[in-house]
Design a protein around this nucleic acid. Sequence first.
DNA 1: TCTCAACCTG
DNA 2: CAGGTTGAGA
Length: 669
Amino acid sequence: MNLSLSDQSMHTSSEGYPEEEKGELLHPCFRRSMYDDSLTTYSNGSIISQLLRKTIQSKRVLEDNLFYLPATTVSSSTMADSSQEDQSSNSSKESMVELASPGSHPSVTASPPADRPLNEHHQAKRARVENIIRGMAGSPNARVPGEGERSEADGRDAREAYRENKRKQRLPQHQEHSLGGGPGVSRGGSGSKEEECQRLKEQLQTMQRLLRQLQEKFFQVYNLSDSEQEDREEVGLAGSMECEEPFQGSDSELHGDQDSDFEKRTDSVKAGRRGAVNGGHFSFHKEGKNLPETLKHELSRAVSESVDLVFKKFSSTLSPQLQMGQVAAHVNIGPEKKTQILCVQEQPLTEESMKTRALEYYESAEVQIPEDQTEALSLVVRKPPLNHPNSVNQAVKRPYPVHQAPFQFSYSAPLHENQILEHLLKYGPHGNFGSLPCLPPGVDRSSPDSVDLPWDTLSARPKVSSTQMVHHARSTALGQVAMDSLCLPHVKMECGDLQSLAERNPYMSLNISFQEGLTPNHLKKAKLMFFYTRYPSSNVLKTFFPDVKFNRCITSQLIKWFSNFREFYYIQMEKFARQAIVDGVNSVTDMSVTRDSELFRALNMHYNKANDFQVPDRFLEVAEITLQEFFNAISMTKDTDPSWKKAIYKVICKLDSDVPDEFKSSNCV
DNA sequence: TCTCAACCTG
DNA sequence: CAGGTTGAGA
């Protein structure tokens, strides 16, 4: 996954753009935040006028379609997909709601308004109103907090001009509504209603014309053919900024395949438009008692919605290009790769895609989540090797505390009780072996037993581990009735009376968390204890494994462990003794064991594989004695006796030392 | 007869 | 490392 790509797309869709792109494509003005009425405080109608004056084309159908514009824009105002729904469209909707007076019957936009004013008188007045609009002074804009102060092209200025225009024209509405006063136009303070009505009509016409020109400017900027425009006009969207064809067309050109989500969005847009059309909020037939107000509303709303749509369409159409260029610049690839990247970028920001991107972001960033993360199963991470060479090394280890587990969350995955309980059991009740004072600095003390045992690798674990878990589960089942449901199903049970119990409890693996059973860390601890005692008594075992709930099985297992330790130990002794004899060693005094001895390395590798434990000198002495005993016996050919080792065992068993009290701690390893 | 440790095997 | 066997010792 390309983090930068995803990240970039998410950011560029709402924030900064390269300077040149901004200036050329007018994109900044389409940023969501720019629609915020409350944040964009000034406007400049003259900028719109400037923009419009630059319009080269003058469509012959302009006048004919003038009054289709508001209707179509009203209908298309609902086209904004959810991802781009913004305050601008909301404001439009507000206007629509305000207009939906009880007396207004729904109008079908297919029928042109009856009072379509196309006479020259209105044309003249329209020009006058245009001058008024053009003369609306613009003041320095208060920038939206957080937005860049970079130079932004006229696109933004045009947008702000539009916004200010809208704001100014909507203001009287609010005043009226808030004050409950009668109709009135704040600007001009004209006399009769008829005059005001007429003036507002003219103003509306003018604005519609201007918007039409703005449309044309839009089409012109993006090289939309006349046929495309006409097509749009022919389908009754002449006045609307709705233009799916270029929208899709540009997409297709850029990245061939139409994203299914995109198509869905388009469909929803169409549906929304149809619904709005059927709703028919806008109508010039509303010649009720409050016509001036109605016209005022219409003017305001038409301008708002139309320009909203223009900008939205701008944004929808152009942002992919912009993003594509930006991505290409970021990843520094050739243009031939742009299509591919664009496919990634152009995915509509549906809820799912947003989730996906967010997920990718967090995954790639390895964002770590706090302790409320309980999606345990997916968080298990391979454990580094443990301190001993046996199969326990293959267990997994959680490198983080649970509250720092790597973040791979699923939006849809609910927290399962068992998962929560699993974490609770694993990390809650027992600290386990966290620190051992006798251990030198740098010793790995970060692997509590309960954590070592994996959830997802049990089946792959070697036999020993499974067996340990069996014992563990068994002991737990005996001692923790409340946790009977926490059993390991796939581990062979050694004790028949508990096997059935385990088989009946699918969550037996959770027993791992309990220290009543023997864990890999217990094994590690036992091996370290072997440096002190080769023949530990049951009492010693119970004393030094206080966190183990002892029973017959556990005790036997521990005894067996030490038996195995001794076995290995004596095998090594005999092997090295014989080797020494083969090598021609004549004197037993030459048989010494030091930390540099190969024998010691072998033993240390077996009992202290991680070499994180300082082997006591006494063990070296005992090992040396043992080696000498074997040397002497072999030298004297006592090994011909089948029980020749028993004498050696009898000697060695007396050499046990006391295990340090530090081992009594349940978390010393 | 039972327990334990060594031994053997996997 | 564990399971099974064996033989010594109590």
